[in-house]
């Protein structure tokens, strides 16, 4: 190759000035920071930018600056996920600690009652496990279901830690009990609903499905919304 052409090629290898990449990233307003998060299932790394938390993972992020702790206010940056995935994750954020919901509950709540499988997929791809509590979504037959951040065992461990009592859930499911009603209030709930836990044993009525509960004259709880009618 001729000298001129070789020299032009060499010009193309001119390195960018020191700090160029960081200046670009900060100019675009996307610099990431990360911090460690200790949990009952091990150490995770939480990464966030100005818009909010972008990921939680086992691996230390390759990029970004290490911070001493999490941001005081947790917001979530779900940019890049589909609208459906975002809806699933935002709904999942509403499930209180110590409680669980089923995949079909999430599907119904976001107005896509047939998309149960897709809800499972969206949760399996949750980029922010732990903080967006996809572990609080389980199968309606009481099986704890898959968990991306460490398998069913990890999922059981967090649920146990949060006080959801997975063994009790499995027991109820084995008996075919999906809802618990209260003889005094005539309201039926999902088993982990706070209201359901306050029902005294002698007043507790198990139901296999919502129709049985409604036939018996019970109406669905407005907090845990165990049945379609409640959210309508």
């Amino acid at each position: 190759m001729e000298t001129l052409e070789r020299e032009l090629q060499e010009l193309g290898r001119v390195p960018a000035p020191r700090g160029f990449v960081d200046r670009v990233i900060s100019a675009a307003g996307v610099g990431e920071r990360y911090a460690e998060l200790e949990t009952v299932i091990g150490t995770f790394f939480v990464a966030w930018n100005r818009a909010g938390v972008t990921s939680v993972g086992r691996e230390r992020p390759e990029e970004g600056e290490k911070a001493d702790g999490l941001p005081r206010q947790l917001r979530f940056d779900l940019e890049g996920l589909t609208e459906f995935e975002q809806a699933v994750l935002r709904k999942t954020l509403e499930i209180p600690r110590g409680q669980v919901r089923s995949y079909s509950w999430v599907a119904r709540e976001i107005g896509r009652p047939r998309a149960v499988r897709a809800v499972g997929t969206a949760l399996a791809n949750n980029p922010i496990p732990i903080l967006i509590p996809c572990h609080r979504v389980v199968r309606s037959d009481g099986v704890i279901g898959q968990y991306g951040a460490g398998g069913p065992e990890a999922k059981r461990k967090i649920l146990d830690f949060e006080g959801a009592d997975p063994d009790r859930l499995a027991r109820l499911a084995r008996q075919g009990t999906r809802f618990l009603g209260s003889r005094t209030t005539r309201i039926f709930c999902l088993p982990t609903c706070n209201a359901a836990r306050r029902i005294q044993e002698q007043n507790r009525v198990p139901f296999q499905d919502e129709r049985a509960a409604e036939r018996a004259g019970y109406r669905p709880c407005s907090r845990c919304r165990p049945a379609a009618q409640a959210s309508a």
Partner: peptide, 21 residues
């Protein structure tokens, strides 16, 4: 697609020199 900001950072690292040159 997965995460715009992380992807962007990777993109700047991958293409920063080329675009600067």
């Amino acid at each position: 697609v997965r995460n715009l900001d992380q992807g962007f950072e990777a993109m700047v690292r991958d293409y920063g020199q080329r675009l600067f040159a």
